[in-house]
Each structure stands twice: as structure tokens, then as C-alpha cells.
């Protein structure tokens, strides 16, 4: 069942934002020759494997953090609604960090950059994390009621 209150305007805003994300990923591929994968760009800095391209990674992260910060300064940042218990937030962060690095990609790397080139690894990874997310949602929200 589609949620109550969802309108096509939400979908169109999603589409517009998605086109911007896709345009950014395209520019990074065609200009810099690199994959715009958020977990790989950050993870490579943290575990040292991306040291040779550290400045490029830092520049991208500066834009990624900085541009929304300007929007927030102008008072237009939408709420994140992240209100869960801190313990759950910590567990979730650990799972996302560890999982995306083990899998070599997240929503942007596997989902956007992988699927668009019909990469088997990208498609399988995306199906698996969507499946795992949906199952977790059933358990955590509807069975245990912890989120």
C-alpha cells in the first residue's frame, strides 16, 4: 500500500534530485574518470587505501557537506527526522560503514553507478541490500517496534 499523503509532487521532487545526482555522477566519470561512490570515497580516506587520490576525495566531500550546509544556513534544510534511540543509531552506523566497505559500494556506487552500466555485482548488491532493508523494516518496525 502506498502511504497516505504521498503525492506525485514528492515523486517529481525525487526525480529532479535524482537527475542532479545522476548528473554529478556523470560529470565525475567523464571529467575525473572516477566512480562517484560515497562509501568508497570516504572509506578510502579512512583506511588509507585511497591515499594517492586523497585531495580529490576531500574536495568531493567538501562539496557534498558544504553545499547542503549553505542551504541550511539559508534556512531551507529539510528535517532529517532522525529521532531513534542513540544505541540504534550507533548500531546502524556501524552496519552501514562495515557493510558498504565489505561490499565495495553503497547506494551511489552499486545502485547508481553499477546498475547504469548493467554491472552484475552492482545489481546483485542492490537487490541484496534492498531485500535486507525490507526484512529489517518488517522486524524492527512491525514485529519488535524498535524504530
Amino acid at each position: 500500500m502506498v502511504m497516505e499523503g504521498w503525492t506525485l509532487a514528492d515523486g517529481l521532487r525525487g526525480l529532479a534530485g535524482g537527475l542532479m545526482i545522476g548528473a554529478a555522477a556523470s560529470a565525475y566519470l567523464l571529467i575525473n574518470g572516477r566512480i562517484m561512490g560515497a562509501s568508497g570515497i570516504l572509506g578510502g580516506l579512512l583506511d588509507g587505501s585511497g591515499r594517492a587520490t586523497a585531495s580529490e576525495r576531500l574536495a568531493l566531500i567538501a562539496g557534498l557537506v558544504g553545499a547542503p550546509a549553505l542551504v541550511a544556513l539559508a534556512g531551507h534544510a529539510p528535517p532529517t527526522h532522525l529521532t531513534g534511540a542513540l544505541a540504534i543509531v550507533i548500531v546502524a552506523g556501524l552496519l552501514v560503514g562495515l557493510g558498504t566497505r565489505l561490499a565495495n559500494g553503497c547506494t551511489s556506487g552499486h545502485g547508481v553507478c553499477g546498475i547504469s552500466r548493467l554491472s552484475i555485482r552492482g545489481i546483485v548488491a542492490t537487490l541484496l541490500y534492498l531485500l535486507s532493508g525490507a526484512v529489517t523494516m518488517v522486524l524492527a518496525r512491525h514485529v519488535w517496534g524498535i524504530i
Partner: peptide
């Protein structure tokens, strides 16, 4: 990795 990521 993908299964862990999806859960988080």
C-alpha cells in the same frame, strides 16, 4: 556486506 548495509 550488502546484507549488513541494508539492515543498517
Amino acid at each position: 556486506g550488502s546484507l549488513l548495509f541494508g539492515a543498517g
